[in-house]
Design a protein around this nucleic acid. Sequence first.
DNA 1: TGCGCGATTCTC
DNA 2: AGAATCGCGCAT
Length: 176
Amino acid sequence: MILPCSFFNRPAPEVARALLGQTLVRRLPDGRRLAAVITETEAYDGFEDEASHAHRGRTPRNGVMFGPPGRIYLYLCYGMHWMLNLVTREADYPAAVLLRGTSDVSGPGRLTRHFDLDGQLNGQSLGSASGLWIRSAGSDPGSRRIRTAPRVGVDYAGPQWASKPWRFILKGKRNG
DNA sequence: TGCGCGATTCTC
DNA sequence: AGAATCGCGCAT
């Protein structure tokens, strides 16, 4: 079953955790399909989250984070890597989940390269029209198969936010 | 209008 | 350890 946008209408850490074990599916322009199990995610939630792009308010770049749940937020990092995020929570509340890894790719930049994703899909919704969606596994991986960790590369945020365990990793899946 | 830097990755 | 590489966000 394909996850509906309503699946994303809840706090980002909750969605980040719930996405583990689900399958990311990509329909390429030439019709080919790529699919891989999501193994690593990170949550960014709210204005107060100092690690979030939205912490200093709405800007042209982060505007998609303020959109309705299930939107695709793609931004360029370090001038060369696209980061894939899925918007969570209701409209006007900025929150998103960064996809950091799947069963056959490690790292958010390599993930988007593998799935042929760039700014073209920024702002679109998950689904057939965009050619990107999530297929549900049906069963939830038990908490024993999930570990949490601080988010990567967010030392610029205050210690309270930099140390939050909002990175979620599925154990026992090949990562890379 | 200019400048520092980043939710990274690859090579040396 | 350092480079690659560029748009964004804030300061001027």
